[in-house]
Nucleic acid binder design. Structure first.
Length: 221
DNA sequence: CCAGACGTTGTT
DNA sequence: GTCTGG
DNA sequence: CCAGACGTTGTT
DNA sequence: GTCTGG
């Protein structure tokens, strides 16, 4: 679940929305087809640290991976088990972030096995604040990557129409707690959004290709 | 002790 | 079937 | 996440 | 690096 998304909000508007200081090397927007291993926009914070809008690689690399493909591509982390998993436990305690999106894609399958894509977005039109964890990784030649994974949870009734998992979407009031700016207790935030929070529609199969581009990808069919 | 896993999704 | 690319 | 490659030799 | 299995 949540293996593709769209982002249309300009970086400066993103920085303003989250009251974050933007870095200089942010990914280009709009991007209607953000894929695993791409650079994405993320918000970080903390008790002492100012909020930053920063770029991360979507695909979490535990520090023991020897190569970027030294293990499975970790684009999602299950909220139910994230605190115990060796790969994620220290990140969920110390390095939580918000990944900003306009909407995300999910696929259903026809009886013939074809993939039908859907675009899911906030009912009120606001950008989505997706819960994430991040990890810095250093490769064999000393190269470094700031990597992240999206936290997932069981689908609510609305989403279960198309899929049994969904990303954790954070309401604005919950941003400080998730970012570690408001003490302990972030674990309670790893839950499904309320039933009326998200809306969805079928989009064209052209988004099935990771090379597809353009605003047509999120238009309803 | 050493060796090997460490993860998610979906499908069967 | 499995891995890589995006 | 889905789509597409999955190979060698030699020539441009 | 850290945990599990044997």
């Amino acid at each position: 679940m949540c293996g593709r998304f769209s982002i249309t909000l300009p970086s400066d508007a993103m920085a303003q929305l989250f009251a974050a200081q933007p870095d200089n090397d942010l990914p280009g927007v709009p991007d209607y087809n953000v894929c695993p291993t791409n650079r994405i926009h993320a918000i970080t914070g903390g008790e002492a640290a100012p909020r930053r809008l920063t770029a991360m690689r979507w695909g979490f690399l535990p520090h023991w991976y020897k190569k970027t493909n030294g293990g499975p591509l970790l684009i999602n982390a299950r909220g139910e088990t994230i605190a115990e998993k060796p790969a994620f436990r220290s990140a969920v305690r110390q390095r939580r972030a918000i990944v900003v999106a306009t909407g995300f894609y999910e696929w259903t399958r026809t009886p013939e096995g074809e993939r039908d894509p859907w675009h899911i977005f906030a009912s009120d039109g606001a950008p989505l604040a997706m819960a994430a964890i991040w990890q810095d990784w250093t490769g064999p030649e000393g190269e470094t990557l700031r990597t992240c994974a999206l936290v997932t949870t069981a689908a609510n009734k609305t989403m279960s129409r198309i899929h049994h998992r969904m990303p954790v979407i954070l309401a604005p009031d919950d941003w400080p707690l998730w970012l570690g700016e408001a003490g302990q207790g972030a674990a309670r935030l790893m839950a499904a959004a309320t039933e009326d929070a998200l809306d969805m529609y079928r989009v064209d199969r052209q988004v099935n290709s990771n090379r597809a581009k353009g605003p047509g990808l999120t238009e309803p069919v």
